[in-house]
Design a protein around this nucleic acid. Structure first.
Length: 422
RNA sequence: GGAGAGGUGGCCGAGCGGCUGAAGGCAGCUGCCUGCUAAGCAGUUAACGGGGUAACUCGUUCCUGGGUUCGAAUCCCAGCCUCUCCGCCA
């Protein structure tokens, strides 16, 4: 959520941000509601002040055992008016709040302006795209042949977009998860957390999934809960409604959770194999930081994700998202895209974002600064990394002509030293 | 799932429906004073919102949301959470 004062004082900036993000939030409506709210509030509070005064006087008279029935009768009418006014104020405040929740974050000034992903900018590239003297197979062929990936039976259980891993396939995923968690914890001092996978509406609102992205999530109707679309939701919300100490910042967490996504708007896109699925595991990195450091922290977080790709020798490129491709809550975001030899394409495997104080404001997460005052924190998160696309790349890039998979060196200790899947 | 208890400021904790935004204690800050291991004394310390250049002022907030009342931390209803006992269970 943005500070209403920014909208009030600088509406053109916010309008431009909405336009750049292809967002239709009605800023003029918000300004009108804000003005209306303040007018009503001034009026109501004056009435309230009168009422409080009168109440005190009644109390004094009563205490002296006097007769206050006349004053009480008079106050009855005032009380009714205050009630009516308060109702109006609440109504306007409610509308304003709902409208505010739908205003996207303002992109950072360093973000390229452009309506879609074609305007994303490649910042750097790493590694060489591998060459083969045979035609590399896509992962769904490799996986089925080695009997480590079962798409048909996944679909039998839950429909298309669900898959099962089997035998060394399941083991390989577990190895990747362990490798990544150890990497973040041992090398970067992140704290591993295991969190709920089902969350309430408040939590979803805190990170910005609700109200705008409701259709992208699975909802459990009987309990009015949502399956998390990313670990970002439960992990960020760990500190919802909390006041932190500046000395404790930055907080750094890493968590592996399943992610559930309806992919409602993505029908027909990337349908083969496990390119785009409704449920997948993801290791997510997360930081709560002091505001002045957040853009530096974003760079180090990207580098941290890149380190994993380098460790696994996966060619990749870093893309800075243009405003039109930036998510609702993000101020700045880098995508990591990896080369997959079988599908012959770059795949998004990580999104690393700085949210500024946008989520902190929604969650009411603040810290007490050295100036003794309360300030909103900044939040960041990034995938480190998403499992299915990592699996795709590892299968496709490390295949041999006869369809075997050479397991990357760093994963072997997690697979009892196994060198090949055959 | 059944029965009961409870949710008050950074923390602990009191609070007959009417100067209680909230006693008291701890912690913090500011003075004063003092030299036996840091004590004593005094003062002070909430957040959010509205108005004002400002001093300041008004309002809201005692888990959340409704209700009763001239007036609610205090009474009633619903929800959320915590604890105890019973049941069920990986």
């Amino acid at each position: 959520m943005l500070d209403i004062k920014i909208i009030r004082d600088n509406p053109e900036l916010v309008k431009k941000a909405c336009a750049d993000k292809n967002d239709k939030a009605d800023i003029d409506a918000i300004l009108a509601l804000d003005t209306e709210r303040r007018q009503l509030l001034t009026e109501t509070e004056a009435m309230r002040a009168k009422q409080n005064k009168a109440s005190e006087e009644i109390a004094i008279v009563k205490k002296a055992k006097g007769d206050a029935s006349e004053a009480i009768a008079a106050m009855k009418e005032v009380s009714k008016q205050v009630g009516e006014m308060t109702g109006k104020v609440r109504e306007v405040e409610g509308k304003l709040h709902q409208a505010m929740l739908r205003v996207p974050n303002v992109p950072h000034e360093s973000v390229p302006v452009g309506p879609n992903e074609e305007h994303n900018v490649t910042i750097r590239e790493w590694g060489k795209i591998p060459k083969y003297d045979f035609k590399p197979a896509p992962h769904w062929e490799l996986g089925e042949k080695l009997d480590i990936l079962d798409l048909a039976r996944g679909a039998k259980i839950s429909g298309s977009g669900f898959f099962a891993l089997k035998g060394l396939g399941a083991h390989l995923e577990r190895a990747m998860i362990s490798l990544m968690l150890d990497y973040h914890v041992d090398k970067f001092g992140f704290t591993e957390v295991a969190v709920p996978h089902i969350a309430r509406a408040e939590a979803m609102t805190g990170t910005g999934q609700l109200p705008k992205l409701a259709d992208d999530m699975y909802r459990i109707e009987s309990d009015d809960m949502y399956l998390i679309p990313t670990a970002e939701v439960p992990v960020t919300n760990l500190h919802r409604e909390e006041t932190l100490n500046e000395a404790d910042l930055p907080l750094k967490y890493v968590s592996c959770t399943p992610c559930f996504r309806r992919e409602a708007g993505a029908a027909g896109k990337d349908t083969r194999g496990i390119l785009r699925v409704h449920q997948f595991n993801k290791v997510e990195m997360f930081k709560i930081v002091e505001p002045s450091t957040s853009y530096n922290e974003l760079e180090t977080l990207v580098a941290q994700a890149e380190g994993l790709l380098q460790l696994l020798n996966i060619p990749y490129r870093v893309r800075m998202l243009a405003t039109g491709d930036l998510s609702f809550a993000a101020a700045k975001c880098y995508d990591l895209e990896i080369w997959a030899a079988g599908v012959e394409n770059y795949l998004e495997i990580s999104s690393v974002s700085n949210y500024g104080d946008f989520q902190a404001r929604r969650m009411n997460c603040r810290y007490r600064g050295e100036d003794k005052k309360l300030h909103f924190v900044h939040t960041l998160n990034g995938s480190g990394l998403a499992l299915p696309r990592l699996m795709i790349t590892i299968l496709e890039n490390n295949q041999t002509e006869n369809g075997e998979i050479i397991i990357p060196e760093p994963l072997r200790p997690y697979m009892n030293g196994l060198e090949r899947i055959r």
